[in-house]
Amino acid sequence: MDINLITNILFAMILTGTPLLLVALGEMVCEKSGVLNLGQEGMMLMGAVAGFIAMYHTDNHFLGFVFAMLVGMAMSLLFGFIALHLNANQVAAGLALTIFGTGLSAFLGNDYEGKQITVLPALVETELQNIPIIGKALFAQNAIVYLSWVLIVVVYLFFRYHRQGLSVRAVGEDPTVASNIGLPVMRIRYLSVMFGGAMAGLAGGYLSIAYTPMWTEGMVSGKGWIALTLVVFASWRIERIVLGAYLFGFASIMHLVAQGLNWSISSNLLAMMPYVATLVVLVMLSRDKQRLKLFEPMALGKPWHKNS
C-alpha cells in the first residue's frame, strides 16, 4: 500500500461522497419539516439529465448546475403538490416521483447518450495539491465539492442559530401546534421540500457534469435511496451526514481499492458494496427502535391539513 494509492483513495472518496452528501443534506432539511420525500432518486435523475443537456448546449458549467437545481426544484414541487396539497400518502407520492423521473429522464436524455462535454476542472491549481495523502483530497477538488462544504456550514448554522431553523423543526415536530402559534406550516414545508429538490438536482447535475461526466440512462443507480438511509443513519444531524456520506463514498470506490491492492474480485460483486454497506448500516441503526424514534421528527411522513 503506497502513499499514492492512499492519496488517490482519499481524493476519490470525497469526490464520490459529495453527491450523497448533497442529497442527504436536502432530504434532512425536508424531513426536519416533517415531510418524507422518497423521490430523491427521480429528482437526481432529472437533475442529471437537465444539467447535462444545459451543459452540452451552452458549454457553461455554471448554467448546467443552475438548470439542474431548477429542474430538481420543479420536480419537488410536483411532489409537494400531491403530498402536501392533496394530502396523498407521502411514501406513494415519493415512489411515483421516482418512477416518473426515471422515465422522463430516460426520454429526455435519449439523444444525449454518449455525448461528450468539457470536464469540470479543479477549482484552483496550487502547490498545496502535492502534499502527500491529504493534499489532493483537500485542494484538488472541483467547485461543487467546496460548495458542499459551504452548504454544510450554512445549514448547520441555520438550524443552530437562526429563528427560521427553529420554525422548520417546530413544523416537523407538531404542525398543529406550530400552526396555532402562527407559523405558516404549508409555506415552510413547501420551502423545505424545494430545498431538498434543489439539492437533489444539484447532486444529479454533479454526477452527469462533474463526476462521470456523461449521461447514461438510470445513472444515479440508487444513490438517492442510499442518501435516504444516510439521513436516518445520521439521526438527522449534519456532522454525521458528512461522515456517513464519505463512508459510503468509500464503499462505492472499493473497485479502486481492489485494483490498487491487486485483489481479483468480480467488479460486479464490488459494485454491490454500497448497497450491502447500506443494509449493514440499517441493521446497526435499527436494532434499538426507541433510540431511532427519539431523533426522528415526530410528524415525519404524516399528512397534515389545517383544520383537520
Binding site: I82, L86, A88, A96, T102, E217
Partner: peptide
Amino acid sequence: PRSITGILQGLILFFLLSCDV
C-alpha cells in the same frame, strides 16, 4: 424513444394519487 413508457407509467401513478383525494 421507448422510454415514453416510463413517463406514461409515472403519470398514471401521479394521477391516481391525485384522484384518490
